Computed example of a mutant assay.
Amino acid sequence: MKRRDTLKFAVAAAALFATTSLYTANDSVAQDKKLRIGFSQATTIEPWRAQFNKDIIAEAAKHPEVELIITDGEDKTEKQVADVENLIRQEVKALLISPKESAGLTGVVTQAIDAKIPVFVLDRNVETDKYVQFVGGDNKLIGRAAGEYAVELLGGAGKAKGNVVEIWGGMGTQPAHDRHDGFHEFTDKEPGIKNLLDQQSGDWKQDQAYNIMATALRNNEKIDLVYGHNDPMAYGAYLAAKDAGREKDIKFIGIDALPGEGVTWVNNGELSATFLYATPGAEGLRQAIKFLNGEKVEKNVVLPTLKVTKENASKIMKDNGL
């Protein structure tokens, strides 16, 4: 069925990366490399994560002095902890990590810091500030942008009315909480907006969001807008509404804006909008190399966002060869 197509693509991408956990930027000069850098990825199942890996691999290819070791946490905190412990034993010169869960990875990040390995945290933070740098988007800012646009779609500030379904990402991740909090800074000011669900987590996955939305559709005769914490979940909700014959009555907002996913779905009229959440892999690796070369780096590097609607989606696709 159509709603499984994207999942099949994501699983295929995950399999590609899982089979190559060790990546060397230039094998022919591997013996001459001086900078062994480890990257602990939370999972490669999600399309955004697959793009994340592609971007960091492409950046590593520009630096023949770098040996980049990539591990896949397989969407399991305990696996990612073991991965980082292994990278510590390999005495990597720097550790880049994108945690599955903030609390669950804090202990092993602290171990790396205690071992004098500089740590660069990408996308999701940990519960210590002793790392060298955080690189990622401002999830609260993106949530605010989504909330402001939701209010606009539902009638405008002071007049907005409608029933909203919010589908959370992982409950144990700070980005999900920030995307929720930012969104509600705008929608909670509108007495005409009613939230239909209470912290329903789709765990960032399209199929789980489909199921959440299918239940919401059965239980509610009127749904006006869906806010998914990422594009696959927003699209999963759209597909559930389409299967129920109700997609034309509902607006769908997501986050990520990958050209082949969210931007395409906006261009097709399936999502009303998506907001760019740039992958931090390439910038994170650049920053780590700068630090290892003795340059100063900022404590936080915030990547910019962009609202994608029907007005600019086609240009973004064209610029990306789609």
Rank of each mutant, 00 (worst) to 15 (best):
K222V: 09
A237R: 02
G162D: 07
G245Y: 00
A42S: 15
L7H: 13
G104W: 01
P175R: 06
T279A: 14
F52Q: 14
A115R: 04
Q31L: 13
D224P: 08
L68M: 01
I70Q: 07
E166T: 10
K318D: 07
N211M: 10
L271M: 11
D181Y: 13
V29M: 08
P47E: 12
I212E: 00
S21T: 15
T264W: 03
T106V: 05
K93F: 03
R124D: 07
I88W: 01
G162F: 05
L271I: 02
V126W: 06
V151Y: 10
R4T: 09
E185I: 15
A216S: 04
M317D: 05
T20D: 11
A12Q: 14
E185Y: 13
I70M: 08
R3F: 08
A209P: 03
N268D: 14
K194I: 08
T309E: 03
E283C: 09
Q174P: 10
E127C: 08
L35E: 05
G169P: 06
R4P: 00
M171L: 15
K116D: 15
K242G: 03
E295D: 14
S40Y: 01
L153S: 07
N293M: 04
S40Q: 02
N125A: 12
D181E: 14
V109E: 05
A257L: 00
T71A: 02
S314C: 05
E74I: 12
K33S: 07
G156Q: 08
R124C: 06
L96Q: 03
Y149N: 11
E270T: 06
A160W: 05
A112N: 05
V66P: 01
T44D: 07
G254A: 06
D256Y: 00
P191R: 12
K307G: 12
D83L: 05
R144Q: 15
W48L: 09
G262C: 01
A273K: 03
I57F: 03
S314R: 15
K189Y: 10
K130S: 13
L303W: 03
G182M: 10
A240P: 06
I70F: 01
E74Y: 11
T173W: 09
A150H: 08
S102K: 05
A237Y: 01
G245E: 02
L239G: 09
K296A: 14
L22K: 14
N320G: 09
D72W: 02
L303H: 04
D319R: 00
H229S: 13
W265V: 02
K159P: 05
H229C: 11
G228E: 10
M1G: 14
K251G: 07
E67Y: 04
Y235H: 14
V84S: 04
Q41G: 11
N300Q: 14
K79P: 05
A240N: 05
Y23S: 13
L105F: 02
V297M: 04
K159W: 06
V11M: 12
K8L: 10
D198W: 09
